[in-house]
């Protein structure tokens, strides 16, 4: 595993830890989109099906379990925890996220590496992950007050796929891996969607000001 891949995984893990920290310590999910969190559950559930069929490494298995368990528990907290769920911005989190699921699935049926159940679901998870942040970005734009943990959560979540882009370049150049257009283009789209957010996040960080996105 190269340094970019490891940094990407750690950033991804860090983003989830930051979100769990917010939920546990502040007992709040204000500013967090349940729609995005539900999409991540679907992303992980369809991508990590191979946990039962293929063993890669101890690291790989542990990380998959962590991502599955944490994504399910975040959704559980936001929906069912008696305190946390009251902080959910239901009225502002109105993105119709199921409208993202069907086009991604159709695209995975049409454009995939191999037409098998496992491969189509894996491809679907890549396409869906690329756009899963959209409800969260819309909610952030509507939020007057973006607290630090929420801002950092979204930043780390965006940085993770950006680091994967470097990992893919490295694998292609140094390890002579094959062309892998499906994850590459999905990852590129995913990272590009954060461009605006990154710009304002870094600007506010430099000026030591509170993060606010223009409407």
């Amino acid at each position: 595993m190269n340094v970019f891949r490891l940094a990407g995984d750690m950033t991804h893990l860090l983003s989830i830890m930051v979100l769990l920290l917010k939920i546990h310590s502040m007992k709040s999910c204000a500013g967090i989109s349940l729609k995005t969190q539900e999409l991540y559950v679907l992303v992980f559930a369809t991508r990590y099906l191979d946990i039962f069929t293929t063993y890669f490494s101890f690291y790989n298995t542990v990380m998959k379990i962590v991502f599955l368990v944490t994504s399910f528990s975040i959704v559980w907290y936001m929906r069912h925890h008696k305190v946390v769920r009251q902080t959910y911005d239901r009225d502002q989190d109105t993105f119709r996220h199921h409208l993202l699921v069907i086009p991604c699935f159709l695209l995975a049926l049409l454009i995939n590496h191999r037409f098998t159940v496992r491969e189509v679901l894996w491809t679907f998870s890549l396409y869906l992950e690329a756009v899963a942040i959209l409800p969260q970005l819309v909610l952030l734009q509507r939020s007057r007050n973006i607290d630090n943990l929420t801002g950092n959560y979204v930043f780390f979540l965006g940085a993770y796929r950006g680091l994967y882009l470097f990992n893919w370049i490295y694998r292609y150049m140094a390890e002579k891996s094959q062309l892998r257009w499906i994850p590459w283009i999905s990852g590129l789209v995913q990272t590009a969607l954060y461009a605006d957010f990154f710009y304002y996040y870094i600007k506010s960080w430099k000026k030591r000001e509170k993060l606010q996105l223009p409407a």
Binding site: R5, D9, H12, F56, S57, N60, E119, Y164, Q178
Partner: peptide, 10 residues
């Protein structure tokens, strides 16, 4: 089978 080549990523 080149499944393993890229499915080891998360």
């Amino acid at each position: 089978d080149d499944y393993d080549d890229y499915h080891d990523e998360l």
